[in-house]
Design a protein around this nucleic acid. Sequence first.
RNA 1: UGGGGUGUCGCCAAGUGGUAAGGCAGCGGGCUUUGGACCCGCCAUUCGGGGGUUCGAAUCCUCCCGCCCCAGCCA
Length: 565
Amino acid sequence: MSDEKPKDNFIRDIINADLAAGKNGGRVHTRFPPEPNGYLHIGHVKSLNINFGLAADYQGLCNLRFDDTNPEKEEIEYVGSIKEDIRWLGYDWQDREYYASDYYEQLYAFAEILIGKGAAFVCDLSADEVTATRGTLTKPGQPSPYRNRSIEENLDLFRRMKAGEFSDGSKSLRAKIDMTDPNLLLRDPVMYRLRRAHHYRRGDTWCLYPTYDWAHGQCDSIEGITHSICSLEFEVHRPLYDWFLDQLGIHHPQQIEFARLYLSHTLLSKRKLLALVKEKIVDGWDDPRMPTVSALRRRGYTPSSLRRFAGLVGVAKVNSIVDLAFLESCVREELNKTAPRAMAVLRPLKVVLTNYPEGRTEELDCVNNPEDPSAGIRRVPFSRVLYIERDDFLENPPKKYFRLSPGHEVRLRYAYFITCTGVVKDPGNGEIMEVHCTYDPATRGGDSPDKRSPKSTLHWVSAEHAAPVEVHLYETLFTKRDPSELEEGEDWKANLNPRSLEIVPGAMAEPSLAAARPGDRFQFERLGYFCVDAPCSRPGAPVFNRTVTLRDSWANIIKSGKENQ
RNA sequence: UGGGGUGUCGCCAAGUGGUAAGGCAGCGGGCUUUGGACCCGCCAUUCGGGGGUUCGAAUCCUCCCGCCCCAGCCA
């Protein structure tokens, strides 16, 4: 499945203008800069798609750079998962895998240059004191009493900071900009903090670490990035990044900010997703209910459907929440064309064909994919006792119900027409135990010589041949479209959906499904798309995750209360 | 509140002074051995609101309103 041709957007407009003006010698070089402090999620796919997409469309390059400036939150596990997810999505950074932590020496040298220019100083204020003197949105800040130390003293102190002479938090390096600037980020921001923390890549060689604000722009510059694309919240940081670059007089990438993606009925905050994992509210970063790439993969989403989604949602500067339905329509569209069909009954109801010979079995031809003739045909066993979906039988149906009910005829897909002649109930609770039907031998394969055609076709499975399988059904993780919409006093977990996972234990599938392998995708006819779960399945005992349901117009009729009109 | 952004259909989103694309959702119909898929049709006289400029404005000016971001030694 090829991706759509790119739509124009405001970022492309800027790049086109830059190219027309001959900037950067006609080069386009972007980068994807994750912090290895969590797994990638669907929001990152949008960023990936923009950065790698731009590079591809303009014959440019896109680097992968881990922005690892905070040793306390970063782990090697996350580096691995991020690389795996990017590769799986189909983006290629070739050999350009970089780490901010590899630039620590260079950044340190840059800092000394700033100190040498009198543009940075060592400050002895504590973190709390810095906060207290920063001022507020409306009131200017107070200059640090250490602001006017000599260049020599600053240099000496800074080198001793690096050498480990001072305790954590006792000193910081700050840019000397303007404590009265209405943009708080320009009020002498901290560039380095003392922190004796083990870094997952640099070990214990450093005790002072650059802040993201100090590191990011220079890292982009070092890599020769032309267009540094980031999300909206960094818009107010841009003047700071520009200031650093101008002070240093080095290559100046252009930062462009876009609105990050939000998806309805879920959360895309790494902090909160981590909390769901840590508190075991979900089974891990790849729990199929999560919005992470690894979860979506496990759930059955394809790389191309995610890329297509990312391309289709567009790029703008307005914060917005995209409907989950849109993501779902992207997978459905692809899986409809590619997923082999199969029959599985989630909640079996026994059907006995009273006029079908006992002990007889026939193999019926079933089309593997009506959208793809090359997918061919398979044979599925049929016999006297079958299972159909409990939902497909109603003793007293509403007017618009076309499925099986007493006296009515339906078609069993690729099999026969059957007519319901009676039901057997549990004498105790009145529950329907089995349905009795007669079949019409003249309709073998599902066609009738007299051209009559039932209004409904049901999927089925031969009881004797059925493979018991486990099926996992998912609903949204949160009940509200915007889970952050909270009532007074509620915390962010208030809108968690208690029914987000339903394990269906007694499902019965056509025999071939017992051999399904992890990652295999199917359309269970009339139900939806399912993918064999990798962690939960065992050979011969597949567990099927429902990726997404089929569109269901009957459900709409029920929802709108029109089933009797 | 000071500063920085931003408001076009239920949800995304084109549009850059010439008379409101497209997708998703929804609704009607056709077709159908998946109430699926597919096909056809409908779905903003109006662009946050008020003034103004203009032959002509979502696009320009102006005032007002809403929403988002910034007071981490997080990113």
